[in-house]
């Protein structure tokens, strides 16, 4: 069952030159049909239940304006902001601790847990002592937690989009900047590259003669540098410590840039109504990015592997050239 509340308002000022559109929503999904794994002793492997309560609350805000219109020059801009907070209020009323694994793969778990949000990331992480030092074993390899622990939330805090069109006479330039702020992603690719010692990170560590760590041996000796091969094989491995490969999703990119020229055909006495040529580029560059790869790459995959980069194809940049002729 889904209960949904939506409130919106749309304002226009200065002869429509400035607009303001605001929406608030609150959606509660309850009693969804779910297949949950049974306890191992029950005699069946899984069962269907109607349970769960998931809420989504958020706001969407769009501001658009034409700040400059002077003679042949005009600038149109619009900014939109979206914020969604997903919350798992309850999973299974009969079992408060019920965990549903949306997907898991060798040390990575995407889960639904009461109190968390949809698809929270769980992974094995380092063990720390009470001084915040990474605990090592006798061979100077880091210990990993006994159980997978919460390492991040997929959803960003908010998204921003900024779209602009500047025109002067027959020329126009458009660009779109998108920003994602907050949220986490996780990368097997980075882990495996480290494991094989083919990442830049591991090469740099070899050049420096060690990986700088704040760690401690079982006997209490502090360790500040460890052998790169032994370290990266221990953490980067498929059986490694994936908590080390959780990245901030925050990124700002130039999503689109276009340049357009309207060919003045009206006076040429041709059987052509209008014509234009243009250049367009998409996914052009990052203005800011925290993760060592495009963190948005995996966001459209199935619900079980959201936010997981496992040797995915890199995202592509595209360029286009347009000629438009209307008869």
């Amino acid at each position: 069952m889904i209960k949904s509340l939506e409130v919106g308002t749309d304002w226009r000022f200065l002869e429509g030159k400035v607009g303001f559109d605001f929406t608030y929503y609150s959606i509660a999904s309850t009693d969804q049909r779910m297949s949950i794994p049974t306890l191992q002793g029950v005699g069946f492997n899984s069962m269907l239940i109607n349970a769960g309560k998931i809420t989504n609350k958020g706001i969407e805000l769009i501001v658009d304006a034409e700040p400059v219109t002077r003679g042949a020059f005009s600038w149109k801009t619009s900014l939109n902001y979206a914020h969604n907070r997903n919350k798992i209020v309850e999973v299974n009323p009969d079992d408060k601790n019920q965990i549903i694994n949306l997907g898991s793969s060798e040390g990575y778990y995407s889960r639904i847990v009461a109190g968390g949000s949809f698809g929270d990331l769980y992974a094995f992480n380092f063990e720390y002592d009470n001084q915040g030092r990474i605990k090592l074993d006798e061979n100077k390899k880091p210990l990993k937690t006994a159980e997978p622990v919460f390492v991040g939330r997929i959803d960003p805090d908010f998204n921003l989009g900024w779209n602009n069109t500047l025109s002067y006479k027959h020329f126009s330039i458009g660009f779109l900047v998108n920003g994602v702020f907050g949220g986490n992603v996780l990368s097997y690719t980075e882990a495996m590259l480290d494991n094989y010692g083919v990442s830049k990170r591991s090469a740099d560590a070899r050049d420096r003669g060690g990986v700088e760590v704040n760690a401690v041996m079982p006997d209490g000796t502090s360790v500040t540098s460890v052998d790169p091969e032994s370290w990266y094989r221990a953490i980067g491995n498929i059986n490694g410590i994936l908590g080390a490969y959780v990245y901030d999703r925050t990124n700002i990119r130039l999503t689109q840039f276009s340049l357009n020229y309207d060919i003045p055909v009206r006076n040429l006495n041709l059987p052509v109504k209008s014509a234009s040529i243009g250049l367009i580029g998409q996914n052009l560059l990052f203005l800011y990015r925290k993760a060592p790869y495009d963190p948005e790459l995996t966001m459209s995959a199935g619900s079980g592997s959201q936010a997981l980069d496992n040797f995915n194809l890199p995202s592509t940049r595209t360029y286009g050239f347009n000629i438009k002729v209307n008869f």
Binding site: E106, N195, R233, A234, G236, N237, I238, N239, G240
Partner: peptide, 17 residues
């Protein structure tokens, strides 16, 4: 060798094994 790090064969606990 991708497991050449640590695994059950060298007495290191790996849950899915």
């Amino acid at each position: 060798d991708e497991a050449g790090g640590r695994d059950m064969m060298s007495y290191y606990m790996v849950d899915y094994w």
